[in-house]
Amino acid sequence: MRRLIVSGAIALAALVTGAGAVAIAAGTEAHPPKRSWHFQGPFGTYDRAAAQRGYQVYAEVCAACHSLSLLAYRNLMELGLTDNQVKGLIKDIVVPDLNDDGQPIERPARLSDSFRKPFPNVAAAAAANNGKAPPDLSVIVKAREGGADYIYALLTGYVPFDKLSPEQVKEFSVKKDDNFNTYFPGHKIAMTPPLADDKVTYADGTKATLGQEASDVTEFLAWASEPWMEDRKRTGVRVILFLLALAGLMYAVKRQVWSNKH
């Protein structure tokens, strides 16, 4: 048995070495720097104020091109807003619908409506954006390697053409009108730099720097990707504590039962 444990340790060591090799092999692109997020760790929660500011950034900037189709306006109440506050936020938003005669109309959005899509379909979105449809942002934080760190790095990772070194221009054949982003795979990204200092004016008086906007909208998108995360972690703590207690009792029972056989 002891031998077996030793061999298990050897197998595990092989596994860890292998994992190290994987990390080295993947090291060709710029990795987004690790940032600390309010929602990290086993007890992390979403920063409601940041996520609310992030919604403002989404609504005033991103929503012009990016849909958020898996969310409904009612979901905003989970960010700590009352239904009247949300109704206030969406009072100017209209969504497509059909009237009683089956004709397409636009009507004011209700809480139960999904977020308004900026384009009626993917083809229209691509046509309006030089052939590349802006991705839906509903699960974007889960859909990208690096998650929130990557989204933040991307939003703040633009380098203006005149700041690029001649080697970079040559290596990635960057032209004057291209958008160069340090963290985007291949560096040339269709999206023009979306955020800048004072792109929005925050209602709570927070200074709207580029970094602040990026961090807020990332917090909002992280929430949008997994609004149930806090419930998941809370349930997890309870389940683990319960199972530990049960394991302790089971072990005691097992020892009692086996006490005459060892």
């Binding site: 390697e145 998650g147 998941r232 972690k233 389940v239 683990i240 049960l246 089971m250 072990y251 039962v257």
Partner: peptide, 29 residues
């Protein structure tokens, strides 16, 4: 009893992944 104990220990490891890293074994894509 021995199996029961083993099952519970296994479920602890399983729960750690389910509740604290549900997407760690999956692919972002």
């Amino acid at each position: 009893m021995k199996d029961g104990f083993g099952v519970v220990v296994f479920l602890i490891v399983y729960s750690l992944v389910v509740f604290f890293g549900p997407d760690m074994l999956g692919d972002a894509a």
